[in-house]
């Protein structure tokens, strides 16, 4: 199952590294990354494959959200279907 990970917050050293390490810890493969920094504000969206994840998807959402809070970032993980529904015919 594919999911979208969105990370936003104030830019600091090691955001991408930290998030990627976490994802690999849960056995999640990153398929695509897009990232921008605008006036010190960091935004990253990732397309990931969560089909081999070693935690339940609902649990993954919570764990990544908690990690975000720890790092003063907003991290959300959502199933890709919702974006497809809204933006693809």
């Amino acid at each position: 199952m594919r999911a979208i990970v969105t990370v936003t917050g104030k830019d600091t050293v090691g955001i991408i590294g930290g998030v990627c390490t976490r994802l690999s810890h849960y056995n999640i493969n990153i398929l695509d990354i897009s990232q921008t920094v605008l006036q010190g504000y960091f935004t990253m969206t990732m397309v990931v494959d969560a089909s081999q994840a070693n935690v339940e998807f609902g649990e993954l959402v919570k764990l990544m959200g908690d990690y975000g809070t720890e790092r003063h970032l907003s991290i959300r993980v959502q199933r890709e279907d919702i974006f497809d529904a809204m933006h693809k015919l």
Binding site: I4, T6, S34, T36, T43, T45, V47, R76, E80, I82, F83, D84, M86, H87, K88
Partner: peptide
């Protein structure tokens, strides 16, 4: 293919 703009638009 989804782009970052679409994703951020939905989140907003």
């Amino acid at each position: 293919m989804l782009n970052q703009k679409n994703i951020l638009e939905t989140i907003e």
